[in-house]
Design a protein around this nucleic acid. Structure first.
Lengths: 262, 262
DNA sequence: GCGACATTGTGCACGTGTTCACAAGGGTTA
DNA sequence: TAACCCTTGTGAACACGTGCACAATGTCGC
């Protein structure tokens, strides 16, 4: 996912990527407990709230240091602080949202941004008709100003919410401006140089994964059609050709995804 | 991620979860090639387009069967069909979107839904003031009708795009109505019975992961404050207490995430 | 002060995922 | 037909992630 995932060379402080991905979940569960006035929590309870195994939770937390008390559990407030610090949430991060379509608007209004050290400093779009519009107290600026905006505000995270066709070009521009963290909502695989992290949020991929499992529950993939396991014999070869799209078996959904939403 | 992930008991047809998660990416790359009129592609080329290692690509595809030709590569159209079939995209899946805030609207208008066998059959919300509203050719219906709508349309995938507080209750209701696949945008960990798949899309988690890496690039977590590695001695103990939140070192960002966007 | 108790932190074994490197085997040309 | 080339498919080694089970250890009651 991130292009740096294979740099397990101790400058990562040795925190496994899988652990990093779960820390925000723990953090959210902990802040929930905090609001309810809970002062202390055991690994068992916290693990249940976060939907993970308790041993995994303990191992994850042990990577941050030894912050629990044997026989008692973890002090909620203290753990919130430690995880926040480890994740870098004790400082502010300046975010720019690129692409102000439906999705970009939703993101601009998203409360989760402001509440945890992420400050949206700019909204940018190429469409002249929405440049100048006010959204959530911010004025949409023209994409031509991208480099200026990044430099002026010290943007460190770019959120790309444009149509697929525009994404790579804009990504190149933000990277050229020195941004090294990109959150991509466009349905394309962004190519970036080493040292730049890209994370992808892709609705249709998630749906397709669900469809796969749903199909399995319903009794495996289409009963007709070949599924050679090991036996790629000549029988399979024959059916194979027959099963090809364009031969009358409904392969009519080949249109590329259109990211018309953004 | 999915609650069925540990069912590697051969009824999965032996396709690893990691492979399933990449198939949609390959599919997108392939349809892109198809549009450009490319008939054949090598594992090397396709892997580059999908942003993965070519050996990994070949191993992934080998799980579907032996669909390449040695010395030549893979036939694009045929592979598109096989992956589509394996993912269950050769049939239609009926989707209901629950929660019609900013995000729900963005999802309702998302082109990626319609183009690949996902049909949005209903929009539901609890807010009386938007029930009856027309969005993208669909009328928003009241959440009270949830069970009826699921049964009438044969909904098999529920997309939850509500505030965090409402998500678990609605999830319980859709599961009780027989839905076994849920895509959750609300920032909570949904608890579901075995046999139900939940996938989560969580913006703020992604941002926090980026922040972690960004912080590392900038030289590790806040230089002040303790980070006991192995040596949890008494010095650390002292500083530990001092570094606690509430003792004047800026731990003021404890507010829970507010999913005000939906 | 001390023993019983509860829960953490972790060694270890196992399963999953990734990558290298190469044998297997179609296609193509002479 | 045969030899060569190119790319697939996969064995094997390695890296990573998970979960059990228990020893280590802090707390609390007496």
């Amino acid at each position: 996912m991130t292009s740096r995932q294979n740099r397990r060379d101790r400058s990562d402080r040795g925190i496994p990527e899988a652990t990093v991905a779960r820390l925000p979940v723990y953090l959210r569960a902990l802040t929930g407990l905090q609001e309810r006035g809970v002062a202390t929590v055991s690994s068992e309870e916290l693990a249940a709230a976060a939907g993970v195994n308790s041993a995994k939770l303990r191992k994850d937390l042990s990577h941050l240091g030894s912050y629990g008390t044997r026989g008692v559990g973890y002090e909620v407030e203290y753990l919130v602080y430690q995880i926040s610090r480890e994740l870098g949430l004790t400082q502010d991060w300046v975010v720019a949202i690129i692409g102000v379509g439906n999705l970009g608007r939703a993101l601009a209004g998203y409360g989760g941004f402001a509440s945890r050290g992420f400050r949206v400093a700019a909204l940018l779009d190429a469409d002249e008709s929405i440049v100048g519009e006010e959204i959530g107290g911010m004025t949409v600026r023209h994409i031509d100003r991208l480099e200026d905006v990044i430099a002026d505000h010290g943007v460190s995270i770019a959120v790309i919410a444009t149509p697929a066709a525009a994404a790579q070009g804009l990504c190149d521009r933000v990277v050229a401006s020195g941004v090294t963290s990109v959150l991509n909502f466009a349905p394309v695989v962004l190519q970036v140089p080493d040292g730049v992290d890209v994370r992808k949020v892709d609705l249709s991929i998630e749906l397709q994964i669900l469809a796969f499992h749903e199909q399995r529950k319903a009794g495996g993939p289409d009963e007709y059609g070949p599924r050679p396991g090991q036996d790629a014999g000549h029988y399979v070869e024959t059916v194979r050709r027959d099963a090809r799209p364009g031969n009358g078996n409904g392969m009519t959904r080949a249109a590329e995804f259109t990211e018309s939403a953004t």
